[in-house]
Amino acid sequence: MEITEAIRSVRSKQAQQPSAECSQTLTVRADTFREHILQVYTPSLQETLCTDSQECFFGNHPTLATLNKTYGSRAGAIWLVPQITDCVSFTNNKGTLNDRQTESLASLIASEYYYLKVSELMLFFRRFKLGKYKEIYGNFSPMVITLSIREFIIERNNAYFKHKSKIEEEKRSKDKNSSMSYQEYLKAKNRK
């Protein structure tokens, strides 16, 4: 689903004709979204970006919420469609998702996991393709992805906890090295 389709859908739901200025803004946002997000964070980038999980978790990449705020309320879901489509086609399973299932899955992920960075989701899809999560038996189901993403969230939370602990430990170590004992303080005070 293209961003322009989502914009048309939003416009029809609002039941009002946007002004010419509003229409130009939406077109600019769609072009910017395509250029800065859809053409940059493509499924093929998973092979390079996602080899470094630290970059995916802690790098400067937009969240789904940021996409929605910047490019329109459906931007996160729209970005997810090619990621999901690529993942499903990779499985080469008996069944594929129809358009409605793909859009519904994208909307569910975008609304439930809005806080995830696009790089984190790309890491999830890469790991999914590597077989780190649920196995697929018979026809492919969207539930395989929704159940697997819950496992990924646990991994992500553990990575964030370890990262925060490491930063705090480094800070304590730095503070310890730059502090002085009470005896050293008294000596320094007496020298004055």
Rank of each mutant, 00 (worst) to 15 (best):
Q24H: 07
I37A: 00
L67D: 00
T91Q: 13
E120K: 05
H163E: 13
E35K: 04
I145K: 00
T42C: 05
L45A: 11
A75V: 08
K176Y: 12
K171P: 00
S179P: 03
H36A: 00
A15R: 13
V10K: 08
L80E: 07
S89K: 10
Q54T: 06
G72A: 01
E55R: 09
K189S: 03
S119K: 01
N68L: 01
L123Q: 03
Y41E: 03
Y115H: 11
S178N: 13
V10L: 14
A30V: 02
N60K: 15
R150S: 11
F140P: 09
T102R: 06
S111V: 09
L123I: 04
I136F: 01
Y114H: 13
K166F: 12
D52L: 01
C50V: 05
G138F: 04
P82H: 05
A6K: 12
V28Y: 12
G138Q: 09
T85P: 02
Y71C: 04
Q54W: 00
T63Y: 04
D99I: 07
F128C: 05
K189T: 11
N139I: 12
S141W: 04
Y41V: 01
S23T: 15
C50D: 08
T96S: 11
C87M: 08
E184W: 00
H61V: 10
P43L: 08
Q16P: 00
S19C: 01
Y114Q: 09
E21R: 10
M1G: 13
A106M: 04
R127C: 05
H163W: 08
F33S: 03
L49D: 00
L45H: 04
Y113S: 12
N139S: 15
D99F: 05
I154V: 15
G95D: 14
K166M: 07
N190I: 06
T51D: 09
T63P: 02
P43F: 08
N139A: 15
I145C: 03
Q39N: 13
C22H: 11
K189Q: 08
A20E: 14
N98V: 08
N157L: 09
I3A: 14
L130T: 06
R126V: 02
